[in-house]
């Protein structure tokens, strides 16, 4: 009965969009950061604008933060009895929300790992 009255069941499209945002933010941010930074390395060398590379890393982390917030918003509204293994909409939503949060944490570590060399190496090396 608790499930039926949950506000998350009222707006399924918004809920699922938030859940997918949580799941996809990390991978998308990582991909963008890696590809754009890689492509911009030579440009940074020729113009001396190393700051672009740092900004790209920062942008990726912000993107991940937005995704994590979306996932957390749904997660916080889920009833405590929602079970990752059960077959209801809220149970499945809990599974997706936790997935989104874990992926955001994991990919943020990856983005940070890729950001560290930007402080240590010159793009012209």
């Amino acid at each position: 009965m608790a499930e039926r009255s949950n506000p998350l069941l009222q707006n399924s499209a918004r809920r699922d969009c938030a859940l997918w945002a949580g799941i996809l933010a990390g991978p998308v941010a990582f991909a963008l950061d890696e590809v754009v930074s890689y492509a911009m390395t030579q440009h940074s060398c020729s113009t001396g604008h190393v700051i672009i590379l740092h900004l790209m890393g920062l942008f990726a982390l912000c993107l991940i933060a937005v995704g994590a917030t979306q996932a957390w918003t749904v997660f916080a509204k889920l009833p405590e009895q929602a079970d990752q293994e059960a077959g209801g909409v809220l149970d499945r939503s809990r599974f997706m929300a936790i997935s989104g949060l874990v992926l955001c944490v994991g990919f943020s570590i990856l983005v940070i790992a890729q950001a560290i060399p930007r402080f240590l190496l010159s793009p012209c090396d």
Partner: peptide, 28 residues
């Protein structure tokens, strides 16, 4: 899922001997 996504971000490690910038290689 993570393996699949990160798996797309490794391709340049096959090209470390092609003279790419070190900073670019470090991402991979």
């Amino acid at each position: 899922v993570t393996t699949a996504f990160v798996g797309f971000g490794l391709w340049v490690h096959h090209m470390f001997a092609t003279g790419l910038p070190q900073l670019g290689e470090s991402f991979f």
